[in-house]
Nucleic acid binder design. Structure first.
Lengths: 345, 345
DNA sequence: CCTACCCATGACATGGCTGTCAAGATTGCG
DNA sequence: CGCAATCTTGACAGCCATGTCATGGGTAGG
């Protein structure tokens, strides 16, 4: 093992060390590192072996000071669901690693008063030199933020944006179609009395899911209204929603919760009230998050490739060529587990 | 609103702009920014108002190139539990913000073969210029990593380390005592037949919990062995463990799962087998994570201030003066909810 | 009133890399 | 074989802060 590093106790070797060892100029080393054109094979080889020998790693700070890139991507989130966020983060992180980028995270708190929240957000974005942001819902649809980013010319991509598709590249699934597939599954099982548990209003994707589900049911021939209750995308909200639904006159035979957390809450409310899932009522979630397999019975839900979405969003950001605006659609699919079954006659 | 920023389309004003506007030297601005001594009140005021007017924010890259600090903290994790990790992350993030630092995350994958895993880890740590790392379990107890960090003189603090307390500052709760409090709770309820669900072997804190629980029970007078099963700290592991326990000759009346995820798995296994919680068996978890309130009945568990631990670990790292090595203990407490009750008969 | 010293301030070099431009080497073609 | 065009390489300035050291004014003590 070579302890590498010359002189000055920094412990790091610099580009100059590499240049010297390889017997070439500073700039040539730079060219090799950045894979610039016009470098002879021979020179490249010399430099590369010198780099390897010295265990050289370019200094990010110096690179970003001199150049125009920072080699940092910011992940901006304000998401109450740790599972979802963690998955996104993982995907974004991997894309960063693969491109020698670093991932910085920035967390905003949307429970703060709107005014304070906006100040927080803008300060964050303004101060933070980075090559771009990945936005997660519901920030993806925050017009103040989007306007600011667009005006400042700061690049960004969005994960599962529900509106403003023309403004930036985004990745996501088709929430409308996905929810329609839930409707079809439940309809095929024979259900005819439905309830839906909605997400928070700020979360536009939730609205898309609601529409996809309800529209599909009516298209399939449902002739009565779907009971609609708010569940706030949380377990607790799900419990409340579940309790409300169970207490209603005509207990539906199938409940679609527009995310897994609230579906878990529904199931808890059922178990509390002695209503059996799926014998008495079928429950379906959305996300196929970690919770879906942390409840009993395992939850029927819509799988969306969350980690992959993170990866894709970061990759779009990292491409040197400007990617096309608009939503890049990824595949979803229904995962049928144990929480849905035919209604008892 | 002042659009700030002078000249060159960078959109950012530099220290020079500030110096000019304030009519002082570059260095004086630097002094104000870094709160260095020997600055007159008058000068400081001038500079500060210029900073405000220009909306100036120091360039991190330049600062770290010129100075010795990077203004970045790295959070290194390899943790299967999204809830736990997310909480830590939040705490660390807040401490960073409060100190004008940025948080970079680095995620390693311990499911990779050990050799590859180590290479990954060391490359990460070596390449990444930052002012220090916050380590989460089980990385906190990885001797190869610790040795490398110590040798390289890279600063770090650890969250919930289970060993090697002398090597660096760490924060955590007393897992041994915390588990003893679980034992006392269950004993006081009248339970006399116990099972414990252990964590993965690599997770030394899990072992501490096991010891604290078992020792306390014997001290309280338990005269028979505690059934011990592995649960791997995961929901699935909990299901397996639960199934195994339920299938055993003498069903215990109380089960202590050493984290919440496996406790949730236990409860799922119970519900699956028709064993009621808490009537037939009491279940207790550990962590008071998000899952504890995502199961029904709500889980009795040990609260540990995870977010606070993150904050504390980062703060220790950020202090200019070298903090004392050793474990800084934070408070825990038992949260009694609905999954524990006196045994029948 | 002078020396000694401290405080406030500034000038300037420096950090590691990239961008620009120019020079030398090579190639192509009439 | 000569000249233009192209490819390869290098010299050097500059990015924006910080660290070091020098300077000038003020205060204290003799």
């Amino acid at each position: 093992m070579n302890l590498a590093s010359t002189a000055r106790g920094t412990g790091h070797s610099t580009m100059e060390d590499v240049a010297q060892l390889a017997g070439v100029s500073l700039k040539s080393v730079s060219r090799v590192i950045n894979a610039e054109p016009h470098v002879s094979v021979k020179l490249r080889a010399k430099v590369e072996s010198a780099i390897a020998e010295l265990n050289y790693v370019p200094d990010t700070a110096a690179r970003s000071l001199a150049g125009s890139r920072t080699f940092i991507i910011g992940l901006l989130f304000d998401n109450p669901s740790p599972n979802y966020t963690m998955n996104i983060q993982k995907g974004v992180y991997e894309a960063c690693r693969a491109n020698q980028y670093h991932l910085r995270i920035d967390n905003v708190d949307s429970t703060a008063p709107r005014e304070e929240f906006e100040a927080q957000l803008l300060a964050l974005v303004r101060n933070s030199r980075c090559d771009g942001f990945v936005l997660t819902p519901p920030l993806t649809d925050d017009l103040v933020l989007l306007d600011f980013l667009d005006q400042s010319g700061i690049r960004y991509t969005r994960i599962a944006p529900a509106s403003e598709h023309g403004r930036s590249p985004g990745v996501g699934i088709d929430d409308y179609e996905a929810s329609a597939s839930v409707a079809e599954h439940l309809w095929a099982l024979g259900h005819r009395r439905y309830a839906i548990v909605r997400g928070p209003e700020s979360h536009l994707a939730g609205a898309r899911r609601r529409d996809g589900f309800v529209d599909a049911l009516h298209k399939l021939g449902l002739d009565q209204p779907v009971i609609e209750v708010d569940g706030g995308f949380s377990f607790e909200g799900g419990i409340h929603a579940g309790t409300e639904i169970i207490g209603s006159d005509k207990l539906p035979t199938a409940i679609f919760a527009t995310n897994d957390d609230s579906a878990a809450g529904i199931m808890a409310a059922c178990s509390q009230a002695g209503v059996r899932v799926p014998q008495d009522v079928s429950v379906c979630g959305f996300d196929d998050s970690w919770v879906a397999r942390s409840v009993w019975p395992y939850l029927t839900t819509v799988y969306q490739p969350i980690e992959e979405m993170g990866r894709a969003a970061a990759s779009l950001l990292l491409r040197r060529d400007e990617p096309e605006n608009g939503l890049h659609r990824l595949d979803f699919h229904l995962v049928v587990r144990d929480s849905t079954a035919p209604p008892r006659s």
